[in-house]
Every structure is written in structure tokens, then in C-alpha cells.
Write a protein that binds this DNA or RNA. Sequence first.
DNA 1: CAGTGGTCTAGACCACCGA
DNA 2: CGGTGGTCTAGACCACTGG
Lengths: 236, 236
Amino acid sequence: MTETRMPAYEQVKAFVKRQISSGTWRAGNAVPSESALQQQFCISRMTVNRAMKELAVEGVVTRVQGSGTVVAQLHRISTTLALRDIHEEITERGHRHATRVLAVEPAKADAALAQVFKVRAGTRLFHTVLLHLEDEVAIQLEDRYVNPAAAPGYLGVNFNATTPTSYLLEHAPLTKASYSIEAGLASMSEARHLRIKRGDPCLVMTRSTVSGPHVASFARLVHPGMRYSFNGTFQL
Amino acid sequence: MTETRMPAYEQVKAFVKRQISSGTWRAGNAVPSESALQQQFCISRMTVNRAMKELAVEGVVTRVQGSGTVVAQLHRISTTLALRDIHEEITERGHRHATRVLAVEPAKADAALAQVFKVRAGTRLFHTVLLHLEDEVAIQLEDRYVNPAAAPGYLGVNFNATTPTSYLLEHAPLTKASYSIEAGLASMSEARHLRIKRGDPCLVMTRSTVSGPHVASFARLVHPGMRYSFNGTFQL
DNA sequence: CAGTGGTCTAGACCACCGA
DNA sequence: CGGTGGTCTAGACCACTGG
């Protein structure tokens, strides 16, 4: 691994990571300055700077202008959680994705929805309820409200061919998204559609997306706890 | 925002993001080449390169050497999920953190643990069970096994003063970690300690960490579904 | 003040892609 | 082949930190 032709900045990164994961440099310890490393590796400072900048982005070191670079307090392990379109997620696993359309209808914003969408109560919204199957097994119940101002054609979409996520990303360019993941219980109707028992635990993600001036969409995604999990890896 | 003194590479990034989020450039469209942007902004190519490189890391664009840069298929919304030390997480919210030590004991690896730790069944491990309270309310039950080879002093730690996460990061430098988040039910004893009803849904995270040659630790973290969630934001 | 990192330049060579 | 991005250099000026 250290033998193959490796860009200079990668070698610097690998060196620093080796010192840390071997315990030679510990959290809070100072890392040699850019000019020191520049001389040690006989490379230009820009190259050292790139290496250290990337390590800072990865959370491996902390840099303070004027002060220096120190090994990060690794009490923060950060990884990337990818929120993906369910169709891609399933097909990438090599499985078949199918959708059952349970509801496609106009709706009116109640007080809670009005707050989420930042509109007046009673404003017209679109509402869809879809069930996503992975190899015929129910894996996600998607209950979604969409702002007509952001995606006027939403109710006309053929949801057997296009997922809401995919359609919205295409027609309401994303500017912001926020999500929350928690454990909850399925309601009676949710349980029936997901073919689980009422009272079975579910992983519930609520997600809202902003497109330009509008809150475009608010979705509640319910997954059977036994058939779904979020996974990730962090590698120093 | 565009008015303040902004580094040149940030201006380039902002420009590209504006084109995308306004819908002018759509997923799959080509982005001007580095030399084109260099001339447009009257800056050096290194600076353009930095901007585009960062956008690629953020997942906003996709670059292929020799081919060019295109607007990424945004079907992948990626955000950062920070796995933090619970003590920091709680104190940062301005609350008090306390720990109840329920078990600190040696244990022997059964078949499942042996597989996780990549050791022979029957190998000696350390076992702790801790309950974490946020302002006196139970928020996480931490059931953890630790490899003595990676942290020989583990059983001697005062867990009222130091969290296992913090101790392990200090004494068994982290090289890799992986996690899984799912919904589950509390066992009878878990429910009793968390002061919830049996059958209440819980967010369960299992996490294993690798330190150098050893699998250092395997933990099951159970959170009452009603009192805990993971949250995140993605901003273009 | 000297030392640090943050940014930037104007070149350069290379590997790769598509025509 | 020309154009693309990937990497690298040897300088430079700046803002910030610490003593």
C-alpha cells in the first residue's frame, strides 16, 4: 500500500494517519507545521497544505490559523449517511423494486402542515401514499405532501414508473433538506400495508425538502424495523 | 452574501451551486471546463480546480478525468451523521449527564461474540452495562464488550467520570468503526432500566470499533424511541 | 514580533478520454 | 490528436495567534 505510486499529498496523509492510529500522536498533540512537513517530504507547501486541509475536512485533525494543527479529539466520529432514492437503493442491491399506489389526491394543509410548509392553513397541497416493495416484500410506506407551487404537475405523475423523490429532484431543484430518524410504532393502517403486526417497531424517517423559495415536500417514511437499517463505516 | 469579501474559490462554488439550484444547469449537464471558468473569473486554474474538487467531494458534481465535469445526479443526498460521545452530546445541549453503572465484569466470548471480535469462542472479554441519563431521564442503555488485548485496563475505569467511548478513544486509537441503526423492541430488563414499557419501540445502534490489529469493542446502544432521534441537514 | 495556516498565481507535466 | 482533469512547484501576500 505504501509501495505503489501514490500522490505526494496522499503519502503525507497516510503518514499522519499512521502516526495517529499507531498511538504515536495522540488527541490534542500538535502536528508538525506545514513548513516542517514540507522539508521532511521534500515537497512544496501547497502539497502539504492540501494533505492537511483534507485531513481537517475528514475530521482527523483540527487546524487553527495562526496557532497550528493538532490531532482532533476523535470524540466525534463522523460518517456519511446517504439519503437515497429508494428505487436506486433497491436496484443497486440487485433486487426488484415495485410500487403500490395507495392514494394520489389533493389535500388541505392543517395547522401542522401549514407550519411545515410555511403557508396558511387550508392551502391546497398534494398528497400521495405509496408502498415500496423490494422483491415483493413491503419495505417502506411513503406518506408525502407536496407543495403545488413547487411542483404543479405532481399529481399527474405515474408513480409506478417514477418515484416521488426522483420526480421532485428533477422538477423542483433541491436547495436544502433536513431529516430526522427515530423509532416508532406503526399505526393500524400502516401495519396493515406493511404486513406487520400492530405494535411492531418501525424506523421512521421524516424528511422535508426546500426548493428555492418553497418548502417543496414533507414525507414520512415508515420502515419495518426487522427489514431495514441504516449502515455506515468510518475508516481512519 | 455575494457581497462580502469571499475567497475566489468560494465565489466559483457559489456560482456553480446557484446555476444548479436555480435549475439553469440540470443533472447530467456538463459544467464548463476549468480553463473556461478560469477565464470567466480571471483567476488561476489551481483556484478553479480547488472549487470544483470540493464540489465533487460534496457530491454536487461528478468529474471524470479526460472527459469533464457534469452536474451530479442528485438522487444521492448525502449528509453527515456524527456518532458522538454521549457525554459531549448531552452537555453540549446544556443538560446534565449522569451514568449508572449496572455491570462491570469479565465475560467469555460466545459464538456470536467470537465472530464479531475474530477470536476463539471462550476468549476472555470485558463486559459493561451502563445507563446514561440526561437530566435524570434515562436516554441510552449501553451494553458493551471490550477486547482486553486492545484495552487491558478497561475494567478499572471509573465509569462515573469517564465514558467507555472516551476511554477507548484515548487508549485504543481508532482505525475503523462501523455502525448500524435500526428499530427494535426493548427486552424486559432493558425496558426496566430505561423506565419504559416492554414493547415500546427503541432506536438501536450497534457499533463496532477496530484498533490496530484488534476488534476493540462491540456495543449495543438502546434508546427509547420517544426520547431520541438522529437529525441532520443537507444544504446545497 | 516570528510562526502559523489561508489563499492565490503562473506556470508545468502527466494520464486519460473521445474523436 | 486536442481537451480534460490530477497533480505539483516555487514563489507570494495576508490574517491570525502566541509570546
